[in-house]
C-alpha cells in the first residue's frame, strides 16, 4: 500500500505502518513522535486532497 501511495506521488515519509500492542504505551509514544517529526519536516500535503466548495 505504501509503495502504491508513493507511486502516485505522495511522499513515502507521510505514510507509516506499525504494529503496537496495547501494552506498549512507550512504543506508541515513540512512534507518534517520530511520525510527527517526519511529517512536519515535509510540510502540509497539497496532493490527493478533496476541496469542498
Amino acid at each position: 500500500m505504501g509503495n502504491l501511495i508513493e507511486h502516485i506521488g505522495i511522499e513515502r515519509e507521510r505514510i507509516h505502518f506499525s504494529w503496537i500492542s496495547s501494552a506498549e504505551a512507550t512504543k506508541f509514544v515513540d512512534v507518534v513522535k517520530d511520525i510527527t517529526e517526519k511529517v512536519r519536516a515535509l510540510g502540509p500535503n497539497e496532493k490527493f486532497k478533496k476541496i469542498y466548495n
Partner: peptide, 17 residues
C-alpha cells in the same frame, strides 16, 4: 513502464496520475 514512473519525483508522479 513502471520503472519510468518510479524514476519521477513525487510532484511529477502526482501530475502524471
Amino acid at each position: 513502464s513502471v520503472e519510468k514512473i518510479e524514476a519521477m519525483d513525487p510532484d511529477e508522479k502526482y501530475q502524471y496520475f
